[in-house]
């Protein structure tokens, strides 16, 4: 399978884990250590490093999942990811640098369906010895900077 097809599969698995609320599968798509961050295009343009979510290990991703399962209180909601086609912008030393656009619709408890976020995944993807791909880095660069009410579920 060519690289683009493998990346499409990886992104499909990523979206499916979140949208079907199999959140425990989500950290498994990352290498360990890794970088996962949710930020905005404006922060990236200004060189500002913070994220509304920030994890540098698979353990921190698992903690995001356990928090939304066990600790945090929020109104029932889920996401529908629409993920575009990945573009490979570079490949060196077994690391593919890719960009993939996304759109997230948030479905609220009361049935409202509205665009919650759009943006681009800026990824560094690696393959293990079996050839399986995972994210060494996924920086979620949101197009805008307004996050309505709260963000419990990862993007």
């Amino acid at each position: 399978m060519d690289m683009t097809s493998r990346l499409v599969q990886l992104n499909a698995a990523y979206a499916r884990a979140i949208d079907t609320e199999k959140f425990e599968d989500w950290p498994k798509l990352f290498a360990d250590p890794c970088l996962y961050k949710v930020t905005t295009a404006d922060n990236v343009a200004k060189g500002l490093e913070s994220g509304i979510m920030y994890a540098d290990s698979r353990g921190m991703l698992e903690d995001r999942v356990s928090a939304l399962r066990k600790a945090n209180i929020y109104e029932r909601q889920r996401y529908r990811h629409i993920v575009g086609l990945p573009v490979v912008t570079g490949e060196a030393g077994g690391v593919a640098t890719t960009e993939t656009p996304f759109l997230i619709v948030r479905i609220m408890r009361d049935g409202a369906m509205a665009v919650f976020a759009t943006g681009c995944y800026h990824d560094r993807v690696v393959a293990d010895s079996s050839g399986a791909l995972s994210f060494a880095e996924r920086v979620v660069v949101c197009d805008g900077g307004r996050f309505d009410t709260l963000v419990a579920i990862p993007f």
């Binding site: 913070s50 979510m53 921190m60 928090a67 209180i73 709260l150």
Partner: peptide
């Protein structure tokens, strides 16, 4: 210290482990 702050920022903001609940309770 920069890294420490980046990690602890998970506590606050729209997706904060702590602050997210303050985002919905007013509503």
């Amino acid at each position: 210290m920069n890294k420490r702050r980046l990690k602890q920022q998970n506590l606050v903001g729209p997706a904060g482990f702590v602050s997210m609940e303050d985002g919905c309770v007013g509503g």
